[in-house]
Design a protein around this nucleic acid. Structure first.
Length: 745
DNA sequence: GAGTTTGAAACT
DNA sequence: CAGTTTCAAACTC
């Protein structure tokens, strides 16, 4: 882990080459040139440039692995003709290998020794032995590539053992790749490739810490792993978290039970499939990245978008990255990297596209992709739970600082792209039931999509992006768009003009009406009621039951300010009828709420009923996520990705420090605004994970200095309206809705 | 994907 | 402020 070379996978590999074992083998083996050649090739070719292909399709990887397995079983031994068929199927390379194996096999005595050695080492359990043949094969492969010198004999055996151990180690590292046969690792470049790719995947999927652990394993001297069987070793060395992963377990189990005897490629494939494809996709986007910590970060790195600074004119452009934690900067997604996000994910990945600059946007972001408040840089994009926590903490802490609040810059990660990590993680944690569901919803651009303006040039409030205070990005389908950094001046000017006309034009549309600080409980229960659309809706035909209605869209009930007709807003009608969902909190209430919701056709499909369904948000341990969860619930599925809901949160956190509550509180708007969700749902919908101590959020809460205010999922995020402090803070923190500024990026 | 509906935003 | 037009999202097919 500590080696300087860790930075590059290639180096890591080279390390292996440099390892005592390798050196030793190299010295011993006459065929060293040949052996090393393949290996070398492997390492060299193993550039992560190749990763993309691998990552692009887990299935592909799986196949590769499958092949390896098959190969593993290839043996000169005729008794195993069945395997030969596989061999035939395999590529030329494999055939070549096979030949080599045969040659090696001729050195039966040597091989036998080796096999014995292996047995002693403990591989026997794993490889049920086709007697000599299997071992020989394995050894042969290893020898062939690594040291296979017939002359080496005892040395060869030792080497083999070492190799095996090493291979085992490698395999262990790979997680999903347990299926990777040890020999395979050494056999061909492709083998390495897949191995590495797998490892990379694993790393990607897991938190940096995990990655580190894996890397460590990888780096650890092969010898260290020799004493135990592969399986045992695997278990021992495998981080618990990996073990917990369903996919991982499957792989392991397979390995233990059948891997070596049967080409259980299917099983492996399945396991791999379970793995978040999205993650893979994300990784794909960073093919060139190396697999070290930094690389990991890079991999995780989402695309950073430009940030609109809503500051005053002098809007400063701040780079989110470092400041992200310290500065609530809003940023827009950078089109440049969108592809990456797309690649990864089509679906899930794009959970949190951009972040809205202005409060509305923040609030709004509901489905659309709203940005996250930077979860600190892109790095946070793929957040492992740990990372996410950190990010969250950073956000809160950062937000809390007055400075940040003043800056008014919120960084968003983009793409939903940006949140791939989160999603992915979520998927992982939850076994990704949701992944499938989400696909339809958020495939590709859909989730990342933004405005579709044709005539407004994206310089009017018609434009969601503009209204949200964010620049349009590539995912937008707008035409003749001026809402781009290039036209910053125009954007700012227009914005000012609009603000001059209506100072609150960019303010959150949903505000909290109650003044006094209600206790949390109250807030939770009355959230919808306490929050209202700033101007009220004017619906005539939608009965305030569709997203045409801003109140409904905002997740708040209609109020006296509304001029709607036939108001049936489930969050509360203007006549004061208790919002079905809102008023109550007990279980019955919840049910009723759901019923109501269900009745609402539009909602029905969308309304999450359980953690799984709610997934994208659910996983988010980050405050941001929580916020969104609570707010955009109703629209999660159909709604576009939240654009920027985090701002509010972020702001809130930042604002929390402030103690002024005189002004009306702007409620964190839900998806479009920040959506508040029915209290009943709130409680119900809240993922257990959030409630649990173990949840990232909890962690955050606890750890957060401001824990009282910031964290309670229930109180703050869970309850629809952001905590009072939050709301008020938002306004204060974000002075006059800052003007747009070109993002630092 | 195209067309329709809807209601906010913009305009008069 | 009211009425009308414009606009783009939401929705439907």
């Amino acid at each position: 882990m500590d080696t300087p070379e860790r930075n590059q996978i290639g180096s890591s590999l080279s390390k292996h080459e440099d390892s005592p074992v390798f050196n030793y083998l190299s010295n011993l083996s006459p065929i060293k040139p040949m052996k090393s050649a393949p290996i070398t090739q492997t390492f060299t070719t193993l550039n992560f440039s190749s990763l993309p292909s691998i990552f692009t399709s887990p299935h592909v990887s799986s196949h590769k692995e499958s092949r390896f397995l098959l190969r593993r079983h290839n043996t000169p031994d005729k008794s195993q003709s069945e395997f030969s068929s596989y061999i035939d199927v395999s590529s030329n390379k494999e055939n070549d290998v096979f030949v080599d194996v045969n040659q090696l096999h001729n050195c039966s005595s040597e091989l036998q020794k080796v096999s014995d050695t292996l047995d002693s080492v403990g591989r026997a359990p794993l490889e049920p032995l086709h007697e000599e043949s299997d071992l020989s094969i394995d050894l042969s492969h290893n020898l062939k590539n690594d040291c296979g010198s017939p002359d080496s004999e005892g040395k060869a055996a030792r080497d083999e053992a070492s190799q095996s151990a090493e291979a085992a180690t490698s395999s262990v590292m790979l997680d999903q790749g347990p299926s990777i046969s040890l020999p395979a690792v050494h056999e061909t470049p492709s083998g390495w490739e897949s191995l590495i790719s797998d490892g990379a995947d694993l790393l990607m999927f897991d938190s940096p810490n995990i990655a580190a652990g894996l890397k460590e394993l990888f780096k650890s001297p092969p010898v260290e792993h020799m004493g135990s069987s592969f399986a045992s070793q695997f278990h021992q060395d495998t981080p618990d978290f990996l073990k917990s992963d369903p996919a991982f377990l499957v792989d392991v189990g397979e390995l233990q039970n059948e891997t070596y005897h049967h080409a259980e490629t299917e099983v492996i494939d399945c396991a791999r499939d379970d793995f978040p494809s999205t993650m893979t996709g994300c990784m794909t986007s960073h093919p060139s990245e190396n697999v070290d910590d930094e690389s990991m970060m890079s991999l995780h790195r989402g695309v950073r978008r430009r940030c609109l600074v809503f500051d005053t004119k002098g809007a400063q452009r701040k780079s989110l990255i470092g400041a992200s934690s310290s500065n609530p900067s809003m940023c827009m997604n950078d089109n440049k990297k969108r592809d990456a996000s797309k690649i990864g994910g089509s679906s899930a990945l794009c959970i949190l596209p951009g972040i809205g600059l202005h409060l509305n946007a923040l609030a709004t972001s509901g489905d659309r992709g709203g940005g996250q408040v930077s979860v600190s840089s892109s790095a946070t994009t793929f957040q492992s739970p740990a990372t996410a926590h950190e990010s969250v903490l950073d956000v809160f802490s950062g937000a809390s600082s007055q400075e940040n609040a003043d800056s008014g810059i919120i960084q968003c990660s983009e793409d939903a792209c940006l949140a791939p990590g989160l999603v992915s993680l979520d998927d992982i944690n939850q076994n990704s039931p949701r992944k499938k569901r989400r696909k339809p919803e958020s495939s590709g651009d859909e989730s990342c999509k933004r405005c579709n303006c044709k005539k407004s040039k994206c310089l009017k409030l018609y434009c969601e992006c503009f209204a949200a205070g964010v620049y349009c990005i590539g995912t937008c389908a707008c035409q003749n768009c001026f809402n781009k950094p290039v036209h910053e001046d125009t954007v700012l000017a227009t914005r000012k003009q609009i603000e001059s006309r209506n100072p609150l034009a960019f303010a959150p549309k949903v505000i909290r009406t109650s003044d006094p600080l209600p206790d949390i409980k109250d807030e939770v229960m009355n959230t919808p009621a306490s929050a209202r659309h700033k101007r009220g809706c004017n619906c005539k035909k939608s009965s305030c039951l569709k997203k045409y209605c801003e109140c409904y869209q905002g997740g708040v009930g209609c109020s006296v300010n509304c001029r709607c007709e036939s108001c049936k807003n489930v969050f509360g009608t203007k006549d004061g009828s208790a919002p079905v969902a809102v008023a109550t909190q007990d279980g019955d209430e919840e049910e009723e709420t759901e019923k109501v919701e269900m009745n609402n056709k539009g909602l029905q499909s969308v309304m999450p009923h359980n953690n799984e369904e709610h997934n994208p948000n659910t996983f988010l341990a980050t405050p941001l996520r929580l916020t969104r969860m609570s707010m955009q619930l109703p629209f999660s599925s159909k709604g576009k990705p939240p654009r920027s809901s985090f701002l509010a949160v972020d702001s809130a956190s930042g604002l929390q420090a402030s103690q002024k509550f005189s002004k009306p509180n702007y409620v964190n708007p839900p998806p479009k605004f920040q959506r508040n969700y029915p209290a009943g749902q709130d409680e119900t919908e809240m993922p257990e994970m959030l409630r649990n101590n173990g949840s990232p959020i909890s962690a955050v809460k606890t750890s957060s200095p401001n824990s009282k205010r910031v964290s309670s999922p229930h109180s703050n995020f869970g309850s629809s309206p952001a905590p009072r402090s939050t709301r008020k803070l938002i306004l204060q923190s974000i002075p006059s809705f800052p003007s747009l500024t070109q993002p630092a990026d």
